[in-house]
Amino acid sequence: MNRRRSDIALAAALLALALFPLAGSTFYLQLVTKIMAMAIFAMSLDLLVGYTGLVSLGHAAFFGIAGYTLALLSPQYEAANLWTTLPAAMAACAMFALVTGALVLRTSGIYFIMVTLAFAQMAYFVFHDTALGGGSDGIYIYVKPEMKLAGRTLLDLGDLGQFYDLVLILMTAVYLFLRRLLGSPFGRALAGIRANEQRMRSLGFPTFRYKLAAYVIAGALAGISGYLAALQFGFVNPEILSWHNSGIVLMMVILGGMGTLHGAIIGAFALVLLQEVLANQAWFGEAAKHWQLAMGVLIVLVALFLPRGLAGLGARPRKASADGR
């Protein structure tokens, strides 16, 4: 029954998002599009952090690699094909995840956090220092990819509203895919690994392979978000792989409440909107320039007082009243 209620809430939220373009201005349409792409990013990381117990601080590498894949595969004055470039971007991420995952998964705990960060930084420097991706200036994507089926354009990605629809569809698809995956035997095994990996091994699970599979899936899904972001903004530069991007997405996951997929979506909305509010000069005047300070203080407070993220806010009073009797 609880699940049914959350399904209804979710359906309502998706409906609201689907209807939003009727009401929202261009600015807000772009903002929500960006947030939904970030929500895909956050959900993919939640698969690792929240469901498998792997705290990665290098997730931006996948985001960036997918963006660069689109940029590098786009012909300069023609439209790229979404049906080939999106899978290619995901495949590039999966490859990077497979190679680095085989290394980083040899470690755990604090080591894992540091090593994922270090490999993402390596990817950052590859794009920053070599001519491969235009160096620190990055690459522009002048023409948006096209999405055709049998010669007909399904969605015109240059059109704001239609691109919004694509991102909403993909976010929903990723949500449903992950929900399905987490309910499968594979997902159950990941939960077992998170709860007690050593016991999983002694029960006969090759836990390394399971974790690697989760890492590759998470990388490929993060690739969708990086692809969409590159498509939306029309350029890529090394900063999209920077560790700040990895930090932000981890904040989203924790803020929304780890181990709940809708939490990752809520976290993405909360963090980006918070940033927009804090940086709003109309409200905060000159102080808005220093929004990072307020954001930093808020993050510190969340770490100290809200260990379960925003999801914990709703749960706490209920628990208190149950205990209070």
């Binding site: 952090v49 705290v55 601080l57 705990g109 604090i110 956090i113 930090g247 981890l250 904040m251 924790i254 780890m258 990072q292 300070l293 954001m295 930093g296 203080v297 808020l298 993050i299 510190v300 969340v302 770490a303 100290l304 260990p307």
Partner: peptide
């Protein structure tokens, strides 16, 4: 460790 990462990441923003 996750909360250590969270808090110290917040501190980076503050110090910056």
């Amino acid at each position: 460790h996750l909360y250590q990462v969270l808090l110290t990441y917040g501190l980076i923003l503050v110090f910056d």
